[in-house]
Nucleic acid binder design. Structure first.
Lengths: 120, 120
DNA sequence: TGTCGTACTACGACTATCGTAGTAACAGTA
DNA sequence: TACTGTTACTACGATAGTCGTAGTACGACA
């Protein structure tokens, strides 16, 4: 399980990615994120709905009420053209982010017990 | 240039990575991050120093005053064993993060103008 | 009637980052 | 001596995203 501090900044992107396949709603998005990541990342409800509000405020999604099928009335969200563009932008940014962070992350290796004596 | 919202959660890791090579101080760390990322990511001073405080509070680094060589007295930071372990942990987490985010990021491709009609 | 599952909504706390500003010390130049 | 530049922080308040907790609402089923 991943702490969401490291995902922060990509929650919106993940949601938009799923909306590319068509309109969806909170509960379904949440389940799909869990499924796609094999439960490695489970988005919190409050995080998800606050993301929806942010996305709508920014014009990246629009919302409408669907016909419910058991349970409370659903709010569906649909991605807009601006949303698609924002998504593409974030995808490109992700490439950069990977480069940047990878420059500091070393593959795990057994640490020798000796002391480091070659400080500059 | 990268917005730090996406790096958030890895600033501490980057700093620890540099401290693996030996003690260092704010200004030098800052310059080294810029250098290693070819200015793709430039850490803000306030972010950096607040990270130092956090790392020290958590026992991942210790600090001491160095002899200055032109300019104000420097505070040097040295990574601790706990810091090394935390760093390794974050490196493993980074692998997971990459898997998770990559499951939602698609390579940029020209979007066809047609409408999507295969909503589930 | 009560419980379960779905689907939110409200609210306040926390934390990392950021902008702005100020301080301090020394070096070099005029 | 005064000024300017570079190094090296330090303080403070604003902002934004996430999180915990709690509550609401609706339908299905027993």
């Amino acid at each position: 399980m991943i702490s969401s501090d490291v995902i922060r900044g990509y929650n919106d992107t993940m949601i938009l990615a799923l909306l590319l396949d068509g309109p969806s709603y909170g509960y379904e998005i949440s389940k799909e994120i869990s499924r796609r990541t094999q439960e490695k990342y489970v988005i919190k409800e409050t995080t998800l709905y606050s993301a929806f509000n942010r996305l709508e405020k920014n014009g990246y999604v629009t919302s409408f009420y669907g016909t419910q099928s058991g349970g409370k009335r659903r709010t569906y969200y649909q991605i807009t053209q601006a949303g698609r563009e924002y998504y593409q932008e974030k995808c490109r940014e992700w490439e950069l982010t990977q480069q940047v962070v990878s420059a500091f992350v070393r593959p795990a290796q057994p640490q020798p017990e000796q002391e480091v004596t070659t400080w500059k």
